[in-house]
Simulated assay, not measured.
Amino acid sequence: MEADPKPPKGPRQGPRDGVRHGRNETEEERADRRWQDLIQEIRVAQTGVQILLGFLLTVVFTPHFQGLHQTDKTIYIVTIVLGSLATGALIGPVALHRIVAGRRIKPRAVIWASRLTLLGLVLLLATLTSSLLLVLRVATHDAYVPWLVAGVLTWYLLCWFALPLWIRFRHTNDE
């Protein structure tokens, strides 16, 4: 009886199907592909956070702002700072790439850019949540505002983190 042939070297094989999974690419090719994916993702988030921050920056110059309670002004200041931090984190990968380009460290640059992007998304989550809290507090002083904001925050957490993590753990091999 013959022994089973050895699996081909290169991309990993599935646990039972013998089908090759993954890509046949060098570390540099993988870094290039991951960088392009990351830049496409950042474009979406960057645009949204920049538009939101732009609108928020104009609020202080409206006549209605001066009549806000101190609590609402504090929420506004926190929101502006969070939006500014989110903008910095989401634009950071572009500056990182520009500064390290040509230094043959793209795989490491992609890792750091990915971390900055994730941080930017967390800060964007906080910015959106505090913006919603501010707008709903000003629009209505009803007791359900914190509950509504908590519900929207829960929705963001489900869409942005829980679902992707569930899919990742459910469909990722233990290899």
Results as ranks from 00 to 15, higher is better:
I99V: 15
S130P: 07
A126I: 04
K73L: 08
G120R: 01
S84M: 14
L134G: 03
R115C: 09
A126Q: 01
T87M: 13
V78K: 03
L124G: 00
I77N: 07
G83Y: 01
V100M: 13
A109L: 14
A113M: 07
V122I: 15
A89V: 04
L132D: 00
H69F: 10
R115E: 06
G120N: 01
P63N: 02
H64I: 11
I91P: 06
L134M: 12
D72W: 02
A109S: 15
A95N: 09
L133D: 07
F61Y: 13
T58Q: 08
V78F: 10
L119C: 08
H69V: 13
L116P: 02
Q66C: 08
V100W: 12
S114H: 13
G67V: 05
R104G: 10
T58L: 15
L85R: 01
P63G: 05
I111C: 09
I75L: 14
I75G: 04
L133P: 03
T62F: 08
G54Y: 04
L121K: 00
Q70E: 09
A113R: 00
F55T: 03
F55V: 09
L85Q: 00
L128M: 11
F61P: 05
I105T: 10
K73S: 04
V78R: 04
F61M: 13
G120L: 01
T71E: 11
Q66D: 12
L90A: 02
I111R: 15
R108E: 12
T87F: 11
R104M: 12
V78I: 15
R108Y: 14
Q66R: 13
V78D: 04
L68R: 02
A95D: 11
T74D: 12
L57T: 07
L119K: 00
R108K: 14
T117V: 03
V100S: 11
I105Y: 05
L134C: 04
V60H: 07
G54H: 05
H97V: 06
V60P: 04
A89R: 00
T62C: 06
G88N: 06
L90W: 06
L121G: 01
L132G: 06
F61H: 08
L119P: 02
G67F: 08
H69D: 11
I105H: 03
L118Y: 08
L116K: 03
F65L: 03
V110G: 00
I77M: 10
F61I: 05
V78H: 06
L56R: 01
L121E: 05
T71N: 09
T79V: 10
A95V: 15
A86V: 00
S114Q: 14
G92F: 15
A113V: 04
T127K: 00
L125G: 14
S131H: 03
P63K: 00
L123F: 04
I80Q: 04
S130T: 15
L96D: 13
R108G: 11
F55N: 04
H64R: 14
L123H: 00
A101D: 15
K73C: 05
V81K: 00
H97C: 10
R104T: 10
L82G: 01
